[in-house]
Design a protein around this nucleic acid. Structure first.
Lengths: 345, 345
DNA sequence: TTGAAAGCGGTACCAG
DNA sequence: CTGGTACCGCTTTCAA
């Protein structure tokens, strides 16, 4: 039966055999030549390369993997994208992975639990390694990867699990930004945190609280639930509802997205930022730089974090015996318009 | 050499052969049994299933694919995530794909061009189909997929390419929201568009312009560059700079994210929304519902769109001969606080 | 320097 | 109903 007009026959796959026949050599020779094996004469190598190019040969990644090689696949477990920080992270991971010839297999995205079938994909597709950001139940992924010799690197998340990690020095960062607030003359503080206890949020709270304690101060704590705009907004309403005498000079939110919610809530309730209340966050998401927010925040070194994370992962894909490693990177303070020095009354 | 303490030997892979030996049958029988082939006696099937379960057998997706089956992989090409709409889409795609047992291979993300190596991944990993959202150069992906018999479905993007698509009825939606504005008494309009000509933006502009034309009206056009908050902000500043006599009653932005930028710019310049100017968008991203914006917009039926898109893709993965198909879904008007009826002067 | 052949883990065809 | 076997595309000994 002749093929229909609208469906040009998908061209037959060009394989090592196709090339071997064309070149009049064995398929094994083709394989070696294309992989730059120096035992093959430069002449034959060149000839085979030429034919491969001409025929548009694309090695089958699956077959290659099956016969014992790497899959080139890295599993990706991504946190709640309601927080733009995770979106930025995703973007950076995708960009850098592409540059390194790594393919990303989406294993999970969002706040929910990682499903079982998802976990199985790690084995079924012979994923070489996993990149995990946040996710409450990431420990399950780490466990199963660990027991199957699949290296795992956590981004923006410290852990005691068998896995390596790269994250911002949250404790130090929170300390630094708190000291900045103290230096600016603020003496009454509010802390905006979450109900869920992610390592990230906890460390930041600690840094803040300790820095205050060193100055003999305490903060009132507000929680809006999750690390989201709405979470911050709810907390912000609570702060705005305080009697003027108890109103904080400055608010520290454990994430930028919450800080933005806080700012909106304060303004919605007639308070000015920074004139009445200074607000700071942590992350430095793109929205923080908008003129309407101009959020003072601790900027996470996103690009280096991802680079370091991929380096660590690739190294462990090469040599699975490498010991776990924890890297902390320092953030940098980004001072913008959401804070202002407090004139002593 | 004994294995080290920290590295428990990765357990040997459980294959059909492992099970076959355990059960005292041929591997082909195992394969059939596990695939529910009714020719195998219910008894043997049960027995094999039990052994498989006990041994924790996970069929190797790669081997299965190599021997002629589907890979279960769908390539994902995602648009600029600066626009939260694409993030929401990603989230929905991931969720629904997981539910259907489809694995997503990230091919691209962002505004940039799709790289060559990325395109090759489609063939190298034997991707069963591709899901494409936006992306200027998505045509290249579509081309190469088309010529290799890999079905493509475009989401939120109409096209004349060989590919199917699902999108919101942008023309109709823009018309409807414009008529709403007219009905509310607005007579002077501004249009906020982009420099890049995505089909989506163009159709929305058309719907708006035509609806106005039907009423004998015209709009001043502003462009802030890209479909982003900043793009909207820049356009908004232009609008705010107009002399009061020329100030529009209502602004139609081709996307929510731009509309938010417009609102912020107007307010930053002392104009009130909706009292001085009404603003509408298109998409209904989560941010639009924030009390601080309360954006009136055309809500895209995201969940049904994705469902329909996956349906179409799966159908074509089963039967590649299916003809291309274009589906338009109607959006629904979400009236919120960023618009207000204009009292006739 | 190159060829032949044996897998990798499944599926499917052909027998029996 | 079930077993044997070839094959998917590539890598990798083992020979020559």
């Amino acid at each position: 039966m002749p093929s229909s007009i609208s469906m040009p026959a998908p061209p037959d796959r060009v394989t090592v055999v196709t090339i071997a026949r064309q070149a009049g050599v064995a398929s094994s020779t083709v394989s070696r030549a294309l992989n730059g094996d120096t035992r093959i004469s430069a002449a034959t190598r060149a000839r085979i390369a030429a034919i491969a190019l001409e025929l548009g040969y694309k090695p089958d990644a699956l077959a290659r993997t099956l016969s014992g090689g790497r899959s080139g696949l890295v599993g990706l477990v991504l946190g709640p994208v309601e927080n733009p920080f995770y979106v930025a992270m995703l973007q950076e991971v995708v960009a850098q992975a592409a540059r390194r010839g790594i393919r990303l297999l989406v294993l999970h995205l969002g706040a929910g639990a990682v499903e079982d079938e998802t976990m199985e994909a790690v084995l079924q597709y012979r994923v070489d390694g996993c990149l995990v950001t946040s996710a409450q139940l990431s420990s399950r992924i780490a466990d199963m990867c660990g027991s199957h010799g699949v290296p795992v690197v956590m981004l923006n998340r410290t852990t005691r699990l068998r896995a390596s990690s790269v994250s911002c020095d949250n404790l130090e960062g929170a300390t630094e930004i708190t000291q900045f607030l103290l230096h600016e003359g603020h003496r009454r503080f509010a802390l905006v945190g979450t109900d869920t206890s992610s390592s990230t949020a906890l460390e930041r709270e600690q840094g803040f609280t300790r820095a205050l304690a060193s100055a003999g101060l305490e903060a009132v704590r507000f929680s809006g639930g999750t690390s989201s705009w709405m979470g911050g907004y709810v907390a912000g309403e609570g702060i705005a509802a305080l009697p003027p005498a108890e109103r904080p000079h400055a608010v520290f939110a454990v994430s930028d997205i919450m800080a933005l919610g806080v700012i909106d809530a304060l303004r919605q309730n007639g308070l000015r930022v920074p004139q009445d209340v200074s607000v700071v966050g942590f992350d430095d998401i793109a929205e923080a730089a908008r003129p309407t927010y101009a959020l003072t925040t601790m900027s996470q070194p996103l690009v280096p974090m991802v680079r370091r994370g991929l380096d660590m992962l690739l190294a462990r894909m090469e040599d699975p015996a490498l010991p776990d490693e924890v890297t902390l990177l320092r953030g940098t303070l980004a001072v913008r318009g959401s804070t202002q020095a407090r004139v002593v009354a």
